[in-house]
Each structure stands twice: as C-alpha cells, then as structure tokens.
Design a protein around this nucleic acid. Structure first.
Lengths: 150, 150
DNA sequence: TCCCAGAGTTCCTTGAGGGAACCCTAGCAG
DNA sequence: CTGCTAGGGTTCCCTCAAGGAACTCTGGGA
C-alpha cells in the first residue's frame, strides 16, 4: 500500500495503480497468467516475503482481479485470473513490449508470443478500437471527459 | 526503490518495473505527457513530497525516460519525454483503458482521447503487429525466448 | 540592498518490506 | 490414535523508504 491513497484521484491511471501499483503485484499477475497459481509456487518463484505475498493476494482478490478457490479437501487454495484480471494482462503485454525494446540487451527477449490468429511470433501494438490504425502518444489529443475533476 | 532489485530478473516486466514501478512514477509521466514539465507544477499537482519527487525525476532521467533541460538563464529546468519515455505512454493509455472500464464508476472516464487518424473519440486496443488482429491474453501462446533464464 | 521564485536538500517520524520462525489444518503411516 | 508431513498462512523484529516541514542556493528585478 502506498502511503498516499491514489484511489480517490480523478485519474484512471491513479485508480489502476491503486489496484496493481504496489511492488510485486504485476509479477504475481504474470506468474498466475502463465499457470503458477499456488502460494508456495509463487513464493518460491518470486522470492517474495510470505507476509507481503499474503497481503498482495488478498488485495488482488478484494479488487476482483484474482479468485481464490479451493483445490482439495484439505485447506488448499489456488489463485486464478478473473475476467477483470485477464484484461489486466494487456498491461503486462505492453510492459513486456517496452522492456523487450529497451531493456532486453544482447540476450534478446526472455519470452515470445505466438499469436493464434496468424500463427506467427509477434509483438503487441496499440491500435484505435474505432479505425484500427496505430494509436500512440502522438496520435491523440487528450480532452477532459465526463468524470473530470474540473 | 523497491527493497528487492527487479532489474536483474530475466523478465521484461520486472525490468520495466525497475524503471517505472516505484510509487508516483507513472503519475509523473502522465503529468509530463500532458504538458506539466516543471518541478513546482508537478509537486503542486500531485501533492508528492519534494524529496520523493526529486528522487523519481533523477531516476527517470538516469534511465533515459525523461530529459532535464534548462529553460532560463537562471537555474530553472523542465522535464520532457524522450522517445523512450514517449513509448512508455502506451503503457499509460492501457492503464487508462482498464481503469476506465472497471473503476470509473458513474461519473465516467476523466479524460478522453481523440484519434488523429480518424478524428473520433476512441479507446486503445492491443493488436498483433504482424496481422493487425486483436491480441489479448487468450490469443497468444507464451514461449521461452532467447533471453530466457533457463 | 532587499526580496522573490524555482528547484532542490536536510532532517525527523512513521510505517511498509524483508526475513525468519512459528502455527493450524487435513491426510496418511504405523 | 499418535506422530509426521505439506500447503498456506501469521507473528515478530529490524531496517529503510515515504511524508512532511523547514532550510538552502541561485540569479533576476524593484
């Protein structure tokens, strides 16, 4: 939890950060995405403190990003992405794209994506949902919306 | 700075978080993006501690995301996005998209984007750079790449 | 000469992250 | 029916980063 509460700001970035902006949260999501779903697995893979892992998982469950579900008669649980959480993977894919481009170095990208639709190894790009053309920082004007603070 | 150093992990998400994963960093980037470039402006708009703002700006400049440039004969500086930083705005736009969808509430989205190419208010979507079709979590297989730790 | 604004720096206090040890709940083996 | 084990957490203490307020430094301008 940040010291300053971002959730009250009139900004979707700040509100998103309130959900997954804490340290480790995106990495937990990544692991769950690629199939690592149990407490012990996550703790061992990330090397995160058990206390912090507990806090993060609870926070993500509270916000509807993960679902905690039993997988045994014994008190055993696994964490899976909800639809809301699955949509957050978009964010991870964009982070991967930027990291691959600027930080991967000589070794090249650690993971690759094969796109089902075309069968090729490909990267993700931001496009306009309306016209389908590329949509980056320089391709848009920013305008105040209905939920603006002003 | 997180206690645990993410920059050594063989993961582009972790390495990206090492650059902009600290609290406030994405919000600083957002402000710079929409034209707020000076220390006093940022401090007043965000309500961030001056000490932390200094740390964050230095960190972002060191990593080549922002450039610190003088704008007066007096020792006055402004911060502007580098091309590397401009590419990070993609990440912000995806965060905005997710926040708008799940967290905006009744008031609606705080900001809107007008896409130059089509002139319409639009949202950003992730597409395959190869075939141009939508590319979300369920549309890809994840494969180990050349920079994989294994 | 004094005042001012921008851009930091210094100092103190509090509380979150790291790490290790501990606990609790089934199953199962003897 | 006792003890062992594994998963999934709690508890505790220590350190260091975030908050916040006060202070500094630089170069105009009145």
């Amino acid at each position: 939890m940040q010291r300053t509460d971002f959730s009250k700001m009139a900004c979707s970035i700040a509100r998103t950060l309130d959900v997954i902006g804490e340290p480790w949260s995106p990495l937990i999501l990544r692991d769950v995405w690629v199939g690592m779903s149990r407490f012990e697995q996550l703790q061992a893979d990330l090397g995160i403190s058990r206390k912090v892992l507990t806090e993060r998982l609870n926070h993500l469950v509270e916000h509807g990003v993960l679902e905690r579900r039993p997988y045994d008669n014994r008190p055993r649980y696994e964490y899976v992405l909800t639809p809301k959480g699955t949509d957050l993977v978009d964010l991870l894919m964009v982070m991967v794209g930027w990291g691959d481009k600027y930080l991967a170095g000589e070794a090249g990208p650690p993971v690759l994506y094969r796109h089902h639709a075309c069968g090729e190894i490909a990267t993700a790009e931001l496009c306009c949902a309306n016209c389908g053309k590329p949509m980056h920082a320089k391709d848009v004007d920013v305008l105040p919306g209905p939920g603006s603070a002003v």
